[in-house]
Design a protein around this nucleic acid. Structure first.
Lengths: 254, 254
DNA sequence: ACGCTATACTTGTAATAACAAGATAACATT
DNA sequence: AATGTTATCTTGTTATTACAAGTATAGCGT
């Protein structure tokens, strides 16, 4: 694993800048991660090596790494080294709002997803509008119905302009997080999203899918997702049964 | 401001413990804050003073303070000192789910609350059950209807066993955050909550209150709140209109 | 009494040094 | 070849020192 030498060799800090050394170094390491030069699981050079590479004391390196660790970008293991962290599952960003699955799995409930649709389609007007593309443009549409104990609980639809994810329509997705696949296969990390949460009542189609009554309530979550280079990347839409305590959250002040 | 000398003088660290010094010190400062010995706005002793008080190097003190700052408990100002931070408004803990008001105010919308009920009542069965008290026990009930641009948007009800908050039924609450009042007047900080989020449809009463149709959908948030000493303190119930994008959240991975 | 300057106090940045503890590789022994 | 020991590498903790930069107070001059 000597490729990092090359990655870092042309990233010297400016010793005359008013910006503290440790902040400059932190940002340079971030750039390596954001640019994809460093990926999940990659090991950073050890502290002594970084001291040499950047020509600063270990204090500075440790401070930069400590902050990166606090921000969740790296994980430091005594005796082993410093590693790029698994990207926070995008679900975690939702403030635990969608931790339902993991929660129920932990409790021993049967949880699985059924893929209803995974194909390239022409974007309808509202989808196109959300994605800021022309109606009729090609998008990858992924619809999943999620079950707990054989009961449909959540219907999710994700739309991604197809040129961003060539081949995704043929990939096996029932076992994996979409966001994990996006990073591994396409080097794409969702870093920002804009979400709205509302409530609607079930129409005929959804009532049938979920086996509930027309007029029963859903929580509806819509979000627009941006990748780390600022590109408007995906539109997500989720319908969650309103009567199943889908969202149970413990909040702790710390 | 020499009262801190007394606060900290009997809180020496154990130099033989496997627990690092900086962690011990961090916890002791936390205890001072949690116990109320140090309140919002209080200044901690300066670093040199803490070095003397705890008989450790400045490195250790700075590490402890850095972590406390990262956790939001203190704020450090160059040249001024280190201060206990304003308690994160409990609303912030909700992952921005209830930042609606501030958001709309910022945008220049007219936002206000109407207090529908602020009195001591006998707890009905479901309220008592949530508060783990006997049905019929005395509780402070606070109902508010919140408006944006003269339109009712949120109906909130909070129930607190009345012996926790003597006199609250007579206090002016339309201008202040309830949680701010609880800390200032009663020294109570909500530190943990258990929340569920669901969806319901409007019954006759709520439809009338919100001027919507019976059967229209609401987001319903219920939560049980614990104070920092672990006491089950309050039960909150909120009805949010499902069609008003009450929850708009920007999420950033950092 | 007011204004300016010097001093003291505060936290922030950075370097150096030493030791601890965990992990891994290399070497020695069986 | 397998096992045990030692050496090396890694991050973690702690101490000391020095200087920087911001803030507040004291002292001095008008």
């Amino acid at each position: 694993m000597n490729s990092w030498d090359e990655s870092f060799s042309d990233t010297k800090i400016n010793f005359d800048s008013p910006i503290p050394y440790y902040i400059q170094i932190k940002e340079k390491i971030k750039e390596q991660i954001d640019s994809g030069s460093l990926k999940y699981g990659d090991q950073l050079p050890g502290e002594p090596v970084l001291c040499n590479l950047f020509a600063v004391s270990r204090t500075v390196i440790r401070q930069a790494l400590a902050e990166l660790e606090h921000e969740g970008l790296v994980a430091r293991k005594k005796g082993k080294g410093t590693f790029v962290s698994e990207p926070e599952s995008f679900e975690k960003l939702s403030g635990n709002l969608s931790g339902f699955y993991q929660h129920m799995k932990k409790r021993g409930h049967l949880a699985y997803s059924q893929i209803l649709k995974q194909e390239i389609v022409h974007a309808e007007k509202d989808i196109a509008s959300n994605l800021n593309i022309k109606p009729g443009s090609l998008v990858l549409q992924l619809d999943r119905l999620r079950y707990i104990d054989n009961e449909p609980i959540v219907l999710t639809s994700t739309y991604i302009p197809s040129h961003f994810v060539p081949g995704l329509e043929n990939m096996e997705l029932s076992r994996e997080s979409l966001y994990g696949v996006l990073e591994r296969e396409y080097g794409i990390v969702i870093s920002r999203a804009y979400r709205t949460i509302g409530a609607v009542v079930a129409n005929e189609y959804h009532a049938g899918l979920f086996k509930i009554k027309k007029g029963d309530p859903f929580i509806v979550i819509s979000q627009i997702e941006y990748s780390s280079d600022g590109t408007l990347f995906a539109y997500y839409h989720g319908l969650y049964r309103g009567d199943r305590n889908v969202f149970e959250v413990e909040m702790v002040r710390q």
